Computed example of a mutant assay.
Amino acid sequence: MLNAVKRYSLQVRLLLATTFVLTLARAITLPYLVVYLAQNFDLDISAIGLIIGGALIVASLLSLYGGYLIDTLRSYTVIIASTLVFAVAFVGAVVSRELSLFFTSLVLINLALAVVDIAAKAGFCTLLGLEERAEVFSIKYTLSNVAYAVGPFLGVALIMLDDHLPFLVSALLGLAMCLSYRRWGERSAPARLDGSPQAGFFSVGGQLLKDRRLICFTLGGALSAVVFGQFTAYLSQYLVVTLDATQAAHYISYLVATNAITVIALQYVIGRRISSRHLMPWLMAGMVLFLAGLLGFSLAQSLLVWCLAMLVFTLGEIIVIPAEYMFIDRIAPEHLRGVYYGAQNLSNLGAALGPVMCGFALAHLVPVATFYLLIGSVLLAALFYYLGARH
């Protein structure tokens, strides 16, 4: 993978580095966010979930306009502004004494990260040929998983030194990438490829609503994200209900480690082989692996079976995420790549829905019904992917 990165131009490497560092900065605060909200704002667990999930939902909706800005303005300008907002928002989170200000800071952190992510995807499509994009999407996703594997450990170490250090270090990382992009980012790239005036945001939104392929793939992506977006949350919920707390914590630690090791080891190897000419077979293979993994979870009676099911489940994740990127790349008009990727980012709404749906199932149905609901979500996602490809 490192040899592949060395072959890329400075601009591609800079986009990869920017998304990696910002994701790392976000991951550093993850282990302490729940504790910080409980200690500083005296919130119960349901209110904390509402704050964290609500911030992600609001940021996902606003990222659609962020994608529009990427198509309208220079990517250089948008990335500089987003990384600066990212840094300032972490400072705002530290100094805020009002819950509304802290919530606004969380929204801005998630929004800035989403906009930079969209800019990176659009930039890869501009800077690289069609056949090279599967590889770079896989590298980007691998780096994101490395960041989420390393970040929480750094966050825990920083917390031991000072309660506010995770937020301040994350702010410094955002500022460092802002200055780095200001120094080495491509300033001469035009905002528009053809120089024609950009349509208004609502006009562009109307155009998106007419693209049935985009609608189907956005719905398919949201339903897929219900399954893999926050799988640790619903697996933790299930294990706490079916096992004692100590055993549940033991199981979930092994499952998270299995997922991280599998992604880091195999994402690049598998993802670079996904061909734009055979996206639907790849996507359907990913759906089948999700189904097999969920069935394995529903039948698992030992830690070994849980880990094997997680391995199969993660293989589906490895395939589906870059394949979704490539499909959006294939259908997006050149002048609307940003807003198309912004629409794809709405799949985060599905990620926010997953734990809520599973919590309802655990409260009102037999525990194993959780996995049957998730299997239904996978089947619906596969149907929407098929409809999108047919159009």
Rank of each mutant, 00 (worst) to 15 (best):
V116T: 07
Y386T: 14
V116A: 00
A361T: 05
A309V: 01
P197M: 10
Y65K: 14
A87N: 11
L243M: 10
F167K: 14
L2F: 15
L308E: 02
A171D: 09
S138Y: 10
L128D: 08
L73Y: 15
Y238W: 00
M280L: 14
T72H: 10
V204Q: 12
L172N: 06
L128R: 05
F231I: 02
L99A: 07
G342I: 06
L193Q: 14
S224W: 06
G350K: 12
A147W: 09
Y238N: 01
V35F: 13
I319R: 02
L193R: 15
L62F: 08
I45D: 07
L279F: 06
N348T: 09
V150Y: 11
T23L: 07
S347G: 00
L208Q: 06
F217A: 04
D163C: 00
L289Q: 05
C178H: 13
S236N: 08
L37P: 08
T19I: 05
G174P: 03
Y340I: 04
A55S: 13
S9T: 12
R330A: 12
A122G: 08
T314L: 00
T104Q: 03
V169L: 15
A149L: 14
F90M: 01
A249I: 05
V107H: 04
A285S: 15
E132I: 03
A81Y: 13
F102N: 11
A285T: 15
T370R: 00
V368D: 00
G129M: 01
I159E: 11
L383N: 01
I331S: 04
W184A: 09
L175M: 10
I48Y: 09
D244Q: 00
F201H: 12
S347W: 09
G354D: 09
V136N: 03
P197H: 10
D71Q: 12
F20M: 03
A47E: 13
L239W: 02
A300P: 02
M177I: 12
F90N: 07
I80V: 15
A191G: 15
S63I: 07
V378N: 01
R74Y: 03
F231K: 06
A93T: 11
M284V: 13
V91S: 02
I51T: 14
A38V: 01
R390S: 12
A300V: 01
F167Q: 11
C216L: 10
V34N: 14
R272A: 04
S377E: 04
E131G: 03
A260P: 14
E324P: 03
A119Q: 07
I261N: 06
I79H: 04
A93G: 08
L2Q: 12
V107D: 08
D42L: 10
Q301I: 07
I70A: 08
A25W: 04
A285H: 03
R213G: 07
P355A: 08
I51L: 15
L308I: 10
T370D: 00
D117H: 09
T19L: 05
T19M: 08
A171I: 08
L64M: 13
D211H: 06
P355T: 03
A260S: 13
